[in-house]
Design a protein around this nucleic acid. Structure first.
Lengths: 155, 155
DNA sequence: CCTGTATACTTGAGACGTCAACGATCTTAG
DNA sequence: CTAAGATCGTTGACGTCTCAAGTATACAGG
């Protein structure tokens, strides 16, 4: 309830802190739900969704890393898990022996189809429902000004 | 550059995704800088700052956990590190033998004094400078509507 | 007083992600 | 053709955080 005047720096700090807290809180709840209902991590689903939107449901690991904002090694390990679960398969590239594609399996597709909706509903409940359409658009635009906003942000 | 009409659900999803990406990107850079200049984690500094603002630079571990949005065990381990570095000390509570306070040491205070400014400048550069004062206030207000926004968000 | 329940904190096991180093392959320039 | 350098991917070592379980203390009701 502080109704005093705040300096630019102060407001930046409190807003950033709130940003961090909001992320931690929403993310934690979202992650718990996703884990319990589908046995997936937020990152898992993120990767699956990227593959889902990609041509032929297939993506190079490097590109995946760039889009999802994980390290190359992070992607390797994440995909290890998804492969183990049978949701994704490796596919070697004929024209460049260095690259390995990650391809969605049929099982992966089904997992997405089943997880997508409930997860979207969770996001809507914990995040989207808090804002009006205009607010969300404004928020989206503001966030897009931050570093690395170039990253693909498809639904 | 999609200028088509989007449903509420769609906009929620893309905004949420952008929120995630923005967090990952800014956080990663911020964390790298803080690590290299002061050998601290974002969470470390967060905890130190909470202590700094607390009465007597002292806080119960439970309260710390609530404010910083870590698990109780997370706090224990984080404080282990800070104690090892001599930035924080334990202090038993006389009236309740269950609680242990974390208290800032002189060295901890100095660390904060030196880290605070550069970190604030980093936040300003990577985050705050992207927005006008009004935008930041609007953003702050919006974020405060999210779950667990009750959490203390002092600078 | 003693028993049951709640609270404070710690600990072991394990998930997730990073960095640094490495092997393999491609590309370019002499 | 070959050597230098870039790119793709994996691996080992490690840090951080969580969950579940356990210990210790506090407190309230019978």
């Amino acid at each position: 309830m502080t109704s005093q005047v705040l300096s630019t720096q102060e407001i930046t700090s409190t807003t950033w802190l709130r940003f961090l807290r909001a992320h931690a809180a929403v993310t934690r709840e979202l992650s718990a739900r996703l884990e319990s209902t589908h046995g997936l991590t937020l990152s898992d689903l993120d990767v699956l969704m990227q593959l889902f939107h990609a041509e032929g449901h297939r993506l190079r690991r490097v590109d995946l890393a760039r889009q999802v904002l994980l390290t190359a090694s992070g992607i390797t390990r994440l995909l290890d898990g998804l492969e183990g679960a049978g949701l994704v398969e490796k596919e070697r590239c004929s024209s460049d022996a260095r690259v390995t594609y990650a391809v969605l399996t049929e099982s992966g597709l089904e997992t997405i189809r089943s997880a997508r909706e409930s997860h979207a509903a969770d996001i809507e409940e914990l995040f989207g429902s808090r804002f009006s359409l205009e607010e969300k658009m404004a928020l989206d635009e503001m966030l897009s000004r931050l570093p690395l906003a170039e990253t693909a942000c498809q639904t």
